[in-house]
């Protein structure tokens, strides 16, 4: 997919673009994982990156969040290259929740959530009224107020993930990137976290970009689905428009039937195994 195409697709979804990549090449230890990628992420929408293990979707997310320096090309936040802006400036506009973050022993939820205020503080102003208010807001949105003084290691996986999301929320950025926010959670907690993110998008208009493992959850929650295989974008668009049996075959190497999700009306992928 070339630059014009992806821009056109994104424009069809929304007038505004939050993040753009131009000829982005990302590499780990010499081996390039993403090469020459042009991608536009629509503002105010939920974009979900899907693909098989090792296809480069997490790498791409880290690249979008400037956690990984590209070998070539760049990422644009609005119109400025993300690497030309100060990292603190970026952190006021873009938050990232990496996969499986680990908190130090004994850290309380409230203390963790307060760390999201880092980019808004300086040596003199370390705890403004706004900081305090944002932390309380983040705790309340994620329904963590009652657990705020508990230490993270005493919480369940779902509660812990909500605490980390609360930290990202207190950062108060227009764009929120999340790498597999539902891993290690049971099904009920997965839906709980996804509903929370959906509400954030709906009520506050935040741009959400996340990597999800589960294709059907991706179809249900995404406004814009980005299918990645071998470091390239294979398809991008509304799930209902791009999800086909051919796409699943190309991206996951899996035969499947696509039917309509009886609950959400979005595409539902039923895998076909070799035996049953």
């Amino acid at each position: 997919m070339n630059a014009e195409n992806s821009a056109v697709t994104a424009q069809a979804l929304s007038q505004r673009i939050a993040l753009t990549t131009r000829k982005l090449t990302l590499a780990y230890d010499g081996a390039s994982v993403i090469s020459d990628l042009d991608l536009a992420i629509p503002a105010g929408k939920i974009t979900v990156l899907v693909g098989s293990n090792g296809c480069g979707k997490s790498t791409l997310l880290r690249g979008l969040a400037r956690l990984l320096k590209p070998r070539h090309g760049t990422v644009y936040l609005d119109s400025a290259s993300i690497f030309k802006l100060s990292t603190k400036e970026v952190a006021k506009r873009l938050g990232i929740l990496p996969q499986g973050p680990v908190a130090p022993e004994g850290l309380t939820v409230r203390e963790l959530v307060a760390q999201g205020r880092y980019p808004h503080q300086n040596w003199l102003q370390q705890w403004s009224k706004e900081d305090e208010w944002m932390v309380e807001q983040a705790l309340s949105i994620t329904d963590m107020i009652e657990l705020a003084d508990r230490s993270l290691d005493t919480l369940s996986g779902g509660q812990r993930q909500r605490a980390w999301i609360a930290m990202s929320l207190s950062q108060n950025t227009d764009i929120l990137l999340l790498d597999e926010p539902t891993t290690f959670l049971d099904l009920a907690h997965q839906i709980e976290v996804l509903d929370l993110l959906y509400d954030l998008n709906q009520t506050q208009g935040r741009t959400i970009v996340m990597v999800l493992h589960d294709l059907n959850q991706a179809c249900r929650y995404a406004d814009c689905l980005v299918a990645i295989a071998q470091g390239q974008v294979v398809a991008q668009g509304e799930p209902a428009q791009i999800m086909t049996e051919a796409l699943v075959r190309e991206v996951f190497g899996l035969e499947s039937r696509i039917i309509q999700d009886p609950v959400a009306g979005t595409p539902l992928c039923i895998p076909v195994g070799r035996r049953r």
Binding site: V90, G95, L97, A103, Q115, P119
Partner: peptide
């Protein structure tokens, strides 16, 4: 405090 949360989280909130 933020370094203690891991390099990626620290970078994410704007720490050099």
């Amino acid at each position: 405090n933020v370094l203690h949360l891991g390099d990626d989280v620290a970078r994410g909130v704007g720490s050099r």
